[in-house]
Simulated assay, not measured.
Amino acid sequence: MIGIVPSRTGARIWHALTALTVLLAVGTQLALVIGDVNIGFGPSNAPLGQRLFEFFSYFTVQSNIFVGIAAGLLAARPDRDGAYFRVLRIAAMFGITVTLLMYHFVLSPLANFTGVASASNIGLHYVVPIFAIVGWILFGPHPRVSWKALFLALIWPGAFIIVTVVQGAVTGFYPYPFVNIDVLGFPTVLINGVGIVALLLAVGSAYKLIDWLISRPKKRTT
Results as ranks from 00 to 15, higher is better:
51 R>P: 04
52 L>Q: 09
55 F>E: 13
56 F>E: 10
57 S>I: 15
58 Y>F: 15
59 F>I: 13
61 V>N: 11
61 V>P: 10
63 S>M: 06
66 F>S: 12
67 V>T: 13
71 A>F: 05
74 L>I: 07
76 A>N: 01
77 R>N: 14
77 R>F: 01
80 R>L: 15
82 G>V: 10
86 R>P: 06
86 R>A: 12
87 V>H: 01
90 I>F: 08
92 A>P: 07
97 T>Y: 00
98 V>S: 12
98 V>Q: 06
103 Y>W: 03
103 Y>C: 00
107 L>V: 11
108 S>H: 00
108 S>G: 00
108 S>Y: 00
109 P>M: 10
110 L>V: 07
111 A>Y: 03
114 T>Q: 06
124 L>S: 04
125 H>N: 09
127 V>A: 10
129 P>I: 06
131 F>S: 14
133 I>G: 05
134 V>H: 07
138 L>E: 11
140 G>M: 03
140 G>I: 08
141 P>V: 06
141 P>D: 08
141 P>T: 06
145 V>Q: 05
147 W>T: 15
149 A>Q: 07
151 F>R: 07
156 W>Q: 10
156 W>L: 12
159 A>Q: 01
162 I>Y: 07
164 T>N: 12
164 T>Q: 09
164 T>C: 12
166 V>R: 08
168 G>P: 00
168 G>H: 01
170 V>M: 13
171 T>P: 03
174 Y>K: 07
178 F>W: 01
180 N>A: 10
181 I>W: 09
181 I>P: 03
181 I>N: 09
183 V>P: 00
184 L>W: 00
185 G>M: 02
